[in-house]
Design a protein around this nucleic acid. Structure first.
Lengths: 150, 150
DNA sequence: GGGCGGGACGTTATATCGTATCCAAACATA
DNA sequence: TATGTTTGGATACGATATAACGTCCCGCCC
């Protein structure tokens, strides 16, 4: 993501948090900005590395706490199959999206497909299951990489 | 799963592997049987504990290798959101199923919902994505636990 | 049977991911 | 300023997963 775009995301996140009465502190903002600036998902320790500031190294709990907050606020998503995190494209409304993960180039596309969401709701309802969280990750090859025969 | 049923699964797995020209060795059989006998998903280290035999403790790679094989053969599934594994209900045909995971009682239900599968295929096709693996896990409360107000 | 090759397994060590705990600093509120 | 709450720093540890290397065993061919 380009710098301008990252700033837009941060500004929107700021507005969202103010509206919700929660604090987007410097650390949280920093983690969000690192994630949004990355073209690929990042592991917690990669974020940690990116946050190190001169010689001073932060400890894992710092990053995990910030991530917990950002996850709760829907500002980032966790990719369970990668043990990694991505910034969210559209944190405005609560949503449960799906991810297409290319294992050739590493790119991850977040989609919000109503047909998938609907079929998940239907399947859950049929068994009386009350869904709280949905993990939908499709691992494979993106169009670009498939074309290049990767 | 009851003993008879576990044996049935093992026997079917044996037949499947023979048909495919791969070997369901003693270790692999052991891991599969532990998983099938468990009412809940098990972590790799839980399997490891279950495999210890008198004083002799096995090392993690032993279990992970067996799990890799069983995953490849579609005899077990990995639940990414739990870092745990379950035996497969119907390994006969290649399939990609979905999981309903109750975080109250720990029970996991494997379903094979054609509507979900279809909507995933459609979404992937629209973006030219070639799917290799699908992770679909719904975390929430099962009917029984919801009823009891958990 | 003897030799060969490849797959499976044992073992050690280590990488990677995540959390419990305790205390200090920053902040909001009055 | 006093006070309670939220946030963050630091240490230690637990949980999950893999790299690397050597050995054994099995099937195959001669």
């Amino acid at each position: 993501m380009e710098a301008t775009s990252v700033n837009q995301v941060l500004d929107r996140a700021e507005v969202l948090c103010q509206g919700r009465g929660v604090r987007l502190t410097a650390q949280r903002r920093r983690v969000l900005s690192i994630l949004c600036a990355s073209p690929r998902p990042l592991g917690a320790y990669e974020i940690l590395d990116a946050m190190r500031d001169g010689s001073r190294a932060l400890a894992p709990p710092t990053v995990y706490r910030a991530l917990d907050f950002l996850l709760e606020q829907g500002l980032v998503h966790k990719l369970e199959s990668l043990h990694a995190f991505v910034g969210c494209n559209h944190p405005e409304h609560p949503h449960s999206s799906q991810f297409l993960i290319c294992n050739a180039c590493g790119e991850v596309t977040e989609i919000e497909d109503e047909a998938i969401a609907r079929s998940l709701r239907t399947a859950a309802r049929e068994t009386g299951f009350r869904a709280q969280r949905r993990v939908v990750e499709v691992i494979g090859t993106c169009a670009g990489c498939a074309e290049k025969g990767r």
